[in-house]
Each structure stands twice: as structure tokens, then as C-alpha cells.
Design a protein around this nucleic acid. Structure first.
Lengths: 161, 161
DNA sequence: TAGTTTGTTTGAAAAATTTCAAATGTTGTG
DNA sequence: CACAACATTTGAAATTTTTCAAACAAACTA
């Protein structure tokens, strides 16, 4: 049964999103849009998830801002329809990668603070750790880029933002 | 001032952890242990964060389970002391990578469900999406492994778990 | 313009998470 | 064994997040 499989997917995405610390409603909506061949309206989603439209509207906005879903124009219709972005998995990864690069900034900012204050050798330990941290996330950046371009090769879509 | 820099680091880690959906207390403890040249006791942490010991004990257990911190034996002392794991950044990444592989399982499980039920071509769309999803996380796995071995080369530590 | 349909915002209720203080366990010491 | 020094568990309080229902706003229709 179609409904059955979709519902299981919704539940698994909800749990996965929750475990990753996102709203589980996000996961549900994403799952629904991934599963559906046609775009869905807010009312469709609301009906499917048995939930009022308020939060769905809000979460859809966030998902759209993060390029995981997008509006789909449907000729005769007045409602907004949403569909999962073409490269939704790649896009989710891009969002994650951007977050990780913030960690590099933390390391850099901390090293800067260490330099400004008269850094006795008291903080040699922290300096070393921060250098390691920066190096780690710098290396990670390269790998993120590699992964994405390789993925887009497989998927044959352009790799730009 | 040492205290000042550490405190800023604690705040930044707290925010970063929170944004990634983890408890911000986790971030604070991790930051403190990264910053400190010597291992810290629960009381040290409790004092530094101005917070009762209960939650700190719990979070430390979780952090230890995830191999981000570990107990440090200190000769004359009776208290438990904790320190950040040697390769804490790599370890955090390993935890994340493990989580991502769960997504591959979701795709596989869904495809299996699609096959079991008489899959009319009604679900061709979802089948395709799930194949893409599986391929994505499979490719990601390779890249995770590459990244980790390259990182350990840089850091020159063994790459095994 | 008045009326209808739809999306968004908002303040309050519900649910989940975090924190605390106290009780309970555990381990070592005399 | 009794006591002391800790760590852990637990139930309640505080805080934060999620959800809802209703008000509001915007866009279309007649």
C-alpha cells in the first residue's frame, strides 16, 4: 500500500531529524515531499500529517530558506504547492558543511583573542588545540568540496550553489 | 586573561552545540576540557559553570560514551577527572558519520518495503528517490573514510576506531 | 467593493527538555 | 563496621520548544 510505505518513511525521517536535533516536523514534511510525485499544498500536508496549518507554514518557510524544498507553480491553482528540491540531499549536505565552517571561525577567533591579550605561555595548550581545530575544519572544507563535485558528477547536475 | 578567553570559548561552543541540536551544556563541558591543560573534576566543572553537579554527571557520561572525553587517572586523587579525548574532533566526526549512515538504512528499508508490497508503477517516483538517496549516502561513506585517514595522516595518529 | 480563499502571525496551551536539590549508591578509610 | 567523600539517580520546578486556534493579511473573484 502506498500510504503505508509513505507513512513509514515519514516516521523514519521524523526520527532522523529529531536525532540530528532538528524539528521532527521538518523531517515529516521533507519525507512527504520526497515521496510524492506531485507537489503538495499546505492543506495536503496538513491533512496528511493531521496537524494544523500554522506550524506547517512556518516550517515550510524555513525549509525553503534552506533550499530543501521549493514552490511549484501549478497552472490553474491558487494555492501554493511545494516540492522537494531537485538535489535535496546535496543541498542538505551543503547546509551542514556551512555550519561546520563556523567551527573554523571559532578556532580563529579564539587564537586572535589569545594573541591580543599578553599571551604568556600559560595558554600554550589552548593555542595548540585551536591550531589543531582550525586545521581539522580546513581539511574538512576541501573534502566537502570534493564530495559535492563528485556527487554532482554522478548525478550530472551543475555543482554551483 | 585566561579566564576571559576560556569563557568566550565556552559560550561559542555552547551556541555551536545548540545550533547543531545538542545540549548546550555538552558544548560548554567540551570547551572547558579542551581549554584546560589539566583534567578537571566534576566539582571543577560545576564550579566553573556555576551549575549543580547532577546534569554535569549525566552529560559527562554521554560524552564519554561518544568518546569525546575520557576519565584521567590522577595519582593521589579520589575524584574522577575528565579530559578531552586525544582526537576529539575526529571522534566527533566519526559520530556524525555513523549517524549519516543511518540514512542509507532508511532508503534501503523503504525500497524493501516497496518491493514486498505489489509495487505497481504507482511508486516509481519514490523508488527512484530512494535509489538516489542510497547512492548519495554510499558515496558519502567513501568520502568520510578518505577524510578520516587523511586527517590521521596529518595528525599522525592511528585511524582505527 | 464585498466576499472568498489561502497564507501568515500571534498569544496561549501542551509537551518536551533542562536544571536543581535532595535522596540514594558506591568506594575508600579509619 | 561506621564514616567520609564522591558520583549517580530521581522527582519536582523552571525553561524552552512545539502546537493549536483564532485573528489578521493578502490576493483573487465576482
Amino acid at each position: 500500500m502506498k500510504k503505508q510505505v509513505t507513512q513509514e518513511l515519514v516516521e523514519m525521517f521524523a526520527e532522523a531529524y529529531h536525532n540530528l536535533g532538528y524539528s521532527s516536523l521538518m523531517g515529516k514534511i521533507v519525507a512527504l515531499l520526497i515521496a510524492s510525485p506531485e507537489p503538495l499544498s499546505l492543506d495536503d500536508i496538513s491533512e496528511e500529517l493531521q496537524m494544523s496549518k500554522g506550524p506547517i507554514s512556518q516550517i515550510c518557510r524555513k525549509l525553503k530558506e534552506h533550499n530543501l524544498i521549493e514552490k511549484a507553480w501549478i497552472p490553474g491553482e491558487r494555492k501554493d504547492f511545494y516540492k522537494a528540491t531537485d538535489d535535496i540531499f546535496g543541498q542538505a549536505f551543503r547546509n551542514y558543511a556551512r555550519n561546520m565552517q563556523k567551527n573554523k571561525l571559532i578556532a580563529q577567533k579564539t587564537m586572535q583573542a589569545l594573541n591580543q591579550n599578553g599571551n604568556g605561555s600559560t595558554m600554550e595548550h589552548l593555542t595548540n588545540r585551536m591550531q589543531e581545530m582550525e586545521a581539522f575544519y580546513e581539511l574538512m572544507k576541501t573534502h566537502h568540496e570534493n564530495f559535492l563535485s563528485e556527487w554532482h558528477e554522478v548525478k550530472s547536475t551543475p555543482a554551483d550553489l
